[in-house]
Design a protein around this nucleic acid. Structure first.
Ligand code: SF4
Ligand code: SF4
Lengths: 145, 145
DNA sequence: TCATTGTTGCATTTTATTTACAACTATAGC
DNA sequence: GCTATAGTTGTAAATAAAATGCAACAATGA
């Protein structure tokens, strides 16, 4: 069970933007985390399409938060970046082949468990996880030096 | 985010055994769910190694529960069949490359969320999800006919 | 007009998962 | 003991999903 690194990259972008409080270019983000610019492209794109960040092309452009960090719920982010939450095949009603789907009580339990997972993440906003922005930025600066 | 079908197959095996209350052969299990015998082999093997089922070779052999269904916690099963719960890369301390690991608050939140997921599953035992064994067996019988 | 910076779509590589297979060992019954 | 049954083991192939790379493009500000 894991999230895609795609989702995690999206989180890292948001964390960076909220920590600096400024806008940043794709290249800057890539350098900050030591990951290829290409990897970030899609993540940033998805964030933009879902209204979490604003982007501006051209000189002086870049990526910035579209709303205050305190209004960006972590669960919303996860829901929009993660391709799916099909924990078991029966969750995908259309393609299910399991013969006991419908009567299987495990299905419901796994749904509840997934909801519990989401609820836990939903307790926090981007602001909650960037209160220690100085430490975060220091770590990033040190590694990217 | 998803569990491997490997884990789900393990659950299906346990559900079947608990529902019939008898032992079953790999072939019988495969036929019951309409999945290839080969797929089940590893799942059953893992279940055996973790003490959930007992196996007997030879004529009249087969697979049966190693303990009462009421003593088989669903979370234990998931923990032993799922290859890992590395939600994000920093969970795997050895191979982590994320520069903010350690200071990142998201890490802790995701750990809590995972624990919440587990706790939810841990509320139930195999007995809890096979109270409707008749319905389950009927569904299986109908589809495998 | 130009350098900068994000956008888009596609191709490739890599990894994880799923599935298949075959030779092997144990068991029960005759 | 022989034989059919049934699980065991290790490996390999196929598939699917994710991760990564690239290049041509479009917008923007100086
Ligand atoms: S119905 Fe039950 S056994 Fe079948 S896929 Fe869903 S959870 Fe698994
Ligand atoms: S430290 Fe934070 S950003 Fe880095 S991998 Fe862990 S959760 Fe993701």
């Amino acid at each position: 069970m894991k999230l895609t690194t795609f989702s995690d990259y999206a989180f890292r972008v948001l964390i960076y933007l909220a920590s600096t409080g400024e806008s940043a270019s794709l290249s800057e983000l890539a350098q900050a985390y030591g990951i290829s610019r290409n990897h970030l492209v899609k993540a940033v794109n998805t964030l933009e399409k879902n209204g979490f960040v604003r982007t501006r092309r051209g000189v002086g452009g870049g990526i910035s938060l579209a709303r205050p960090a305190s209004e960006i719920s972590l669960v919303e982010v996860a829901l929009s970046t993660e391709p799916n939450f099909t924990i078991v095949e029966c969750f995908d009603y259309e393609n299910n082949t399991c013969r006991i789907a419908g009567a299987c009580r495990l299905e419901r339990i796994l749904q509840d468990a997934t909801r519990a997972f989401m609820a836990e993440i939903g307790k926090y906003t981007l602001a909650d996880i960037t209160g220690n922005s100085k430490v975060l930025l220091k770590l990033i600066a040190r590694s990217s030096a």
